[in-house]
Every structure is written in structure tokens, then in C-alpha cells.
Design a protein around this nucleic acid. Structure first.
Lengths: 246, 246
DNA sequence: ACCTGAACACCGTTCAAGT
DNA sequence: ACCTGAACACCGTTCAAGT
């Protein structure tokens, strides 16, 4: 197995000086390891939210200075990516191998993925920018590709489509982070609703015609519909020829 | 026209004390207004990037303290949303009214939207969380809905679908921000490519079968394909019944 | 080879006091 | 009714010096 770039090997026990008994309260300061750092970061996220998972705060939790963490973690983005990778272990992949219609099983796996991110929408934001590449992510990709193959989606479309499906789930979860974080967020939704409601039917005929329809439905229903739209669409839509012209 | 909540009226000229001649260098310190603040923020973004559009940095630019801005702008997220609203004026809506196949015109409008965000991918990130609600955004919605109606997409699906289309463009632009910001970002892509390349064909048969196909194609081609997938999918996929059960 | 103190260069937001 | 100085409570990251 090749060493992942940017992931320094754990220091051996021998190379580490024996930990000086810390301030007598704590149950002996544990040695720093990448694994331990990430585990502490996950715990910190669960207890205080991702916005508290900062290099400084995490260092405090580990009873050291922020500079020490940079031996194991390249930067804050990498830290958050590692936390996400950890969380992806919670995605329920069992529907992939279960009985039933492949489309529904696909939607169930994707729903599970999305609901994991829904529990931590700030993480979804970072996932859009820093794609995970850990084993859990690979397992998820594999499960989705197997389902698409079972459904007869051509390989070249499945290769592009799996990205679109995951992106859709990720972005939907990320959107939710507004409603979570800001107590203010309802206002923003209201701002758009109000803007649409007051839009002049002369200038905005379609907006006026659709009105509340634009904001209807539960998040769950919209999400599932979207997954089916993507799956049906990619079954129907050929990829552009390699020498495509606009 | 109702007053948008959170947008205080501009102070009248009368209510404002005559500006004390500032440090004699600058061409007379202009009065603070929401419009002026946003315009300065846009200029600052163009010259130094969105990451420099902070309350403190912007205040410095306006020759005042950060506290002064809070009279006009609720917080940093609102500031960024206002900047985005401004930028959306650059989206080319002309294809909506032009001749040609509706699908292609739809794709062209969406491509224009996306390329505006591509020029400022950090803004795309914030757009996912704080949806715009300004006039430019309404015009974009209207144009897209008109095209979907022209294409015979049923109203209820268009209402949900327009969101999916915009989200797809926004998320795709947001993803790009990694490649821009971090000099490191290529590494992350490589990490995933490497992980896929080294995935065991026993454990990950589909991943092994598809391989490089997963990363093939230009961003442009993938984007356009995705738009067509969504449009074709929503033409085919009924919304769930109101009392739908899983 | 790790670990760290200290520093550099910033943040958002609030609040009491000014004009 | 705005405008502001100053403060509070933080950030990420680097680097020289320690062990």
C-alpha cells in the first residue's frame, strides 16, 4: 500500500520521549498520533460542532500548542476532510446488496449518505471543496457504481453520473447548514419567498404563476425526486462525443 | 414596495453631519451608504479576492471602523450575499429570448450563470448556503422557468427542477474553489485518483473497471452533460404524490 | 525527529460613549 | 440617528529554539 502523500508515518514508540506527567488532573497526556488527533477532532465536533474544530481549540483539547498538530495535519481543510472520512463510515451501504428494485436501493444509499451529512451540514460545505478519498468514500463509490451497472446504465455515463449524484446530496446538505447555524436563516428564506410573492406578474409571469409551488414539498421528497431525476436522466442522455462542438 | 427586513433606509442627507475633511489626502471621504458599501466590497473582491472582503478590511477601505458597517450590513454572510447579487447582473439571459432549441438555450443561460460563479468560486460556496433573493436572481429564475415551460416541462416539476439546475451549477463552481485557493488542491485530486488507481479489483470491481473514466472529460463537457441529464430527467420523472409513502 | 513558545497578521461582533 | 474606539474572544500558520 503506497504512502498517501501528506500523511507522515506515525512516530514509533521508541522515537518518542516518555510523556511528562501532565498537570496531575488529566489521566496522563496521551502521545500525539494522527489517528488520535482525528479521533479527538471527531469527538470535539460531536460535542461542540465543526466550527469549534479549529487547530487552536483542538490543540487545547490535546493539551498542547497548535504548532504541534502541523506535524500530523497539513492544515485545517485537511483536518476537516479527515473528520468527514471518519463519519462516512456511518453510511448504510446494505441496500446495495439487498433485494428490491435497483433504483430504490440506489436512492436509499444516497439518502443515507445525505442524512449523515445532514447531521453535520458544515461538514457538507467543506466536502464540496475538499473531496474525500478515504476507504469509506471508495466503498460508497463502489456501491453506487454497482447499482448503476445493475440498472444497465452505460459505464461512461455511470462514471460521470456517480459524481453528480453525490454532489447533489452534498450540496443539499450544505444548503441546510444555513438553517442550522444562523438563527437568522429563516429571514433569508423569507426574503426570497417575499421577493417572489411580490414579484410583478408583468415582469415575472412564470414566477407569479408558480408562486408557492417553488417552495413546496418536504426536503426529503425533493431530495428523493432529485435522485430519480438524475438516474432517469443519465439513463437517457448520451455523453457528448469526444470531439464535440458547441 | 415593502421594505426588505434588515435593510435600514439610507440616512437622509439632512440627518448626516457634514463630513469632516478627512486626512487631506483622500478625495473627501464619501458618506456611508449601503449601496456604497456594497460597491466598495465588489471592487475589493475584484482586486483582492473574496477572502479579503471582511468587515475589518472593508472598513479600512472606507476609512472607518468595522463597527460602522453594522449599521448597514447585518453580518459578513449578508455582505457576501449582497456582493453576489451584484455580480448576478453579469449573467447573460439573452439566449432565453433567442431562436433555437430550448434545451440548448437553457444550457447556455445556465452556463453563463456558472461561468460568472467560476470567476469567483469562493462566492459560489457562500451562495450554496445563503441563497440570493435580489432582482438579478429573480430574473434568472424567470428566464429558466420560461424556458422549461416552453419545453413543456410540467409546472410542478419545473418549480422543483429550477432549483436543482441552479444548485448543480453553483456546486460545480464551488468545487472549483479548491483548485483556485489552495496551491495544494492538485494533491487532493491526486489523492483520490491514486486511491482509485490502487483500489483492489477484488474489493472494488466497479472502481477498477471504470478507472480513469471517472476523471475523464473537461469541466465544460461534464457541466453541459449534467444540465441535459437534469432536464431530460425532470421531463420523465413525476413528482411524488402528496401523500407518498416510501 | 518531534514538540513547543511565541510571534505575526489577522478575524467577527458588541457596546458604551461620542457627535 | 448615526458613528466610532476600544475591547472581547477568538483565528491559521510559521519559525527558531528546545528536547
Amino acid at each position: 500500500m503506497p504512502t498517501t502523500p501528506g500523511t507522515p508515518a506515525e512516530p514509533t514508540a521508541a522515537s518518542r520521549p516518555t510523556a511528562p506527567r501532565s498537570r496531575r488532573e488529566r489521566p496522563a497526556k496521551p502521545a500525539l498520533t494522527r489517528t488520535g488527533i482525528v479521533a479527538t477532532a471527531v469527538a470535539l465536533m460531536r460535542s461542540e460542532g465543526l466550527e469549534r474544530v479549529t487547530m487552536r481549540r483542538l490543540a487545547k483539547e490535546l493539551d498542547t500548542g497548535p504548532a504541534s498538530l502541523y506535524v500530523y495535519v497539513a492544515n485545517t481543510a485537511a483536518l476537516h476532510a479527515a473528520v468527514l472520512d471518519e463519519l462516512l463510515g456511518e453510511v448504510d451501504l446494505r441496500p446495495a446488496g439487498a433485494a428490491g428494485a435497483w433504483r430504490d436501493r440506489l436512492a436509499r444509499v444516497l439518502s443515507s449518505y445525505t442524512s449523515v451529512l445532514f447531521a453535520h451540514p458544515e461538514l457538507a460545505r467543506s466536502a464540496l471543496v475538499t473531496r474525500p478519498s478515504g476507504p469509506h468514500y471508495l466503498q460508497l463509490l463502489e456501491a453506487l457504481l454497482a447499482l448503476l451497472a445493475e440498472g444497465g446504465v452505460p459505464d461512461d455515463r455511470a462514471a460521470w453520473g456517480v459524481d453528480a449524484l453525490l454532489q447533489y446530496g452534498t450540496a443539499t446538505a450544505a444548503e441546510q447548514s444555513a438553517r442550522d447555524a444562523a438563527p437568522h436563516a429563516q429571514d433569508e428564506q423569507d426574503a426570497l419567498t417575499a421577493a417572489v410573492r411580490h414579484a410583478s406578474p408583468q415582469t415575472f409571469p412564470r414566477l407569479a404563476a408558480l408562486g408557492a409551488e417553488l417552495f413546496s414539498g418536504t426536503g426529503e421528497d425533493r431530495l428523493t425526486w432529485g435522485f430519480h431525476v438524475l438516474v432517469n436522466g443519465m439513463s437517457d442522455t448520451a455523453r457528448p462525443a469526444r470531439t464535440a462542438t458547441a
